Computed example of a mutant assay.
Amino acid sequence: MFAVYAKEPNADDPLSSLVVGERPDPEVPQGWVRVSMRSASLNMHDIWTLRGVGIKPDQFPMILGCDGAGVLDDGTEVVIHSVVNDPSWHGDDTLDPKRTLLTEKYQGTFAESVVVPSRNVVPKPEGMSFEEAAIMGTAWLTAYRMLFVKSGLRPGQTMLVQGASGGVATALIQLGKAAGMRVWATGRTEDKRALAERLGAHQTFESGARLPERVDAVFETVGKATWSHSVKSLKPGGIIVVSGSTSGPDPSAELQRVFFLQLRVTGSTMGSRDELRDLLSYVDLAGIRPQIGARLPLREAEQGFSDMLHGATAGKIVFTL
């Protein structure tokens, strides 16, 4: 079958490990299902896989792609949940110490078909396109958990989204606006700030700019480049919700400010299958149309990877089959 995969890990030149070609058709173990892919979306996790982060060398070659939407053999249209749990696990999917993501141990979604445990597919809302559904499982699910499960924000409060053009950030802006938050966002360029405003941000600011007032919550996916600004932007008792550090960790951490102002810092990773169901229902009921920055045929996946690697994104990059 046609697929996009990583042939080997390459920390210094990840794109040199990217292959657009053929892979064997997958077998379907008992308790698993085959999904004929219609659309899949690109995540930073796919770049990390090319670099060899979070995957053992003997797992290569590995078909890339955590997210996607497609059709089961019986014709059911589904969205894929990429967190694969140990069969004996009960509880929050994200807390399973033996959990893994697609592309870490099991082959991913950038292919004509993928096999996943039967519990890892949920019905696609009828009014949602395959392209829109394909971006829900990682970026939008991460944003949903950050905002509605972890932050404790109430409608009318003020949230700051750092790095306004990424997949999680654009989702946070749209979800926050729909939920009645006052949404502020930062962006490195005028174009990125303009995108945030089109998506519903009430105000936007240059990265690191002094804000008109402190905020109730900051949503962090950037890390070192924005961390100090995030801490300084919080009201006393406010919360930072962290789900990533694309610019690297910050060793300084501003700990004096954290304890003196009784700030709260909480981590958030992906989301559960039940939260994915709730997210799909919420987006459908609220009439939210997710921001898709680029649509490319899967055969042109290398262009999408290059754009993500160089930060040339304005929302999610979606591949179609």
Rank of each mutant, 00 (worst) to 15 (best):
Lys224Asp: 11
Thr100Asn: 03
Ala314Gln: 11
Val53Ser: 08
Lys224Thr: 07
Tyr106Met: 11
Trp89Pro: 02
Arg145Asp: 00
Gly293Thr: 08
Lys150Ala: 04
Ser118Pro: 13
Ala314Ser: 12
Val258Thr: 15
Ala169Cys: 11
Arg182Val: 13
Ile173Asn: 02
Leu279Thr: 00
Arg210Asn: 15
Thr142Gln: 00
Ser228Asn: 07
Glu131Tyr: 04
Arg119Pro: 12
Thr158Asn: 08
Val116Asn: 02
Gln30Asp: 15
Met37Ala: 02
Gly238Met: 10
Val183Cys: 05
Glu112Lys: 14
Arg210Met: 14
Pro117Val: 09
Glu104Ala: 07
Phe2Lys: 07
Asp92Phe: 05
Ala11Asp: 10
Asp96Ser: 04
Arg38Ile: 11
Arg299Met: 09
Ala253Gln: 09
Asp216His: 11
Thr189Pro: 10
Asn85Ala: 02
Leu234Met: 06
Leu280Lys: 00
Val122Trp: 02
Gly315Phe: 10
Glu22Ser: 15
Phe319Arg: 14
Glu131His: 11
Gln162Val: 10
Pro236Gly: 13
Leu42His: 04
Thr76Cys: 02
Glu112Thr: 14
Glu197Trp: 00
Leu296Glu: 10
Thr313Ser: 09
Ile135Asn: 06
Glu206Trp: 01
Glu22Phe: 02
Lys150Glu: 06
Val121Cys: 02
Thr109Arg: 05
Val4Arg: 03
Asp25Lys: 15
Ile288Thr: 00
Leu160Val: 12
Val283Met: 01
Val215Glu: 13
Gly156Thr: 05
Pro155Asp: 15
Leu147Tyr: 13
Ile47Leu: 07
Pro117Gly: 13
Asp73His: 06
Thr142Val: 07
Pro249Lys: 15
Ala225His: 06
Thr269Asp: 08
Gly54Ala: 05
Thr266Cys: 08
Phe2Leu: 09
His81Glu: 08
Asp216Glu: 13
Ala171Cys: 09
Trp89Glu: 05
Leu321Asp: 15
Ala253Phe: 01
Leu211Ala: 11
Ser17Tyr: 00
Thr109Tyr: 00
Leu276His: 00
Gly54Pro: 04
